[in-house]
Amino acid sequence: MIEYLVPILAGTLPAATPLVLAGLGELVTERAGVLNLGVEGMMLMGAIAGFACAATTGTGVAGALIAGAIGGAAGSAIFAVLAVWLAANQAASGIALTIFGTGLSAFIGQHFVSYSLPGLQPVNLPLLSGLPLLGPVLFHQDPVVYFTLALFAAVSWILARTRVGLVLRAVGEAPEAAHALGYPVLWIRTLAVLAGGALTGMAGAYLSTVYTPLWVQNMTAGRGWIAVALVVFAAWKPGRLLLGAWLFGGVTILQLQAQGLGIALPSQLMSALPYLATIVALVLMSRKQRLLQTSVPAALGKPYLPGA
């Protein structure tokens, strides 16, 4: 049993990494009161930006992550103009961003179909990686996995403990009050949307340059939408988001390792597992209406018009 358990647990962290990054991006955006359903599109824009950068410049994964962040933020900038500054319907604007990002990434990606990238080797953390079970599972991962966890800790800390986080949350709970205190609500929301886009773009770049280092059209395969669902599942709390992402990472890996475990279901049906799990997660959350109602940002999805 243990020889099956280790690869599953060890694969969980990398599989969860794009969900952690994209989910965190959407969480930051939604805590500022903006619902951006364009995660899937921004993730694809980040994925192709990162891939193109890594394939043409030789700046490696670090360059790819930066390019991915820029790509995702560029997508979110279009969304911000519409949904924040022009007060357009947020749900429709996000869906438009997903359609646009899917088209744009496929368009650019046609030049890169036959490329493949070296990916990234896992690093052994000194001493710790020698531990039985825990060593290979936790301390023998690629550097981006650790970087993501550090970024997650930093963003959660900023949200919960700093003035910046307080102002961002105020804008999502009571934009009128924040405006009356002199905070530029629209600019703060714009920055939150851009930060969310950058994190989401990085998630895409990780997918296309590290997790499966080659370009496939629509390679995110719904992970952006799963990230949106995870934020609901997490009741807008970063800690729950991380647990949810690991859970889904585990489900993804379980499906890949199923044959080794002697599960004879056809691979296509196993691949449906993460999507099914997303629906189950949303259904389970229906029992927690009080948690949802007390933690949803009060101004989520509502456009704000100062002085209107």
């Binding site: 022009l86 319907n89 429709a92 359609i99 646009f100 368009f107």
Partner: peptide, 26 residues
């Protein structure tokens, strides 16, 4: 040109429509 250009046009069209629709109420 790659046929994905269709998706690009579709996205642009919806973006511009949502932007222009703002002028209905404002």
């Amino acid at each position: 040109l790659p046929s994905a250009i269709t998706g690009l046009f579709q996205g642009m069209l919806l973006f511009f429509l949502l932007g222009a629709d703002v002028l209905v109420d404002f």
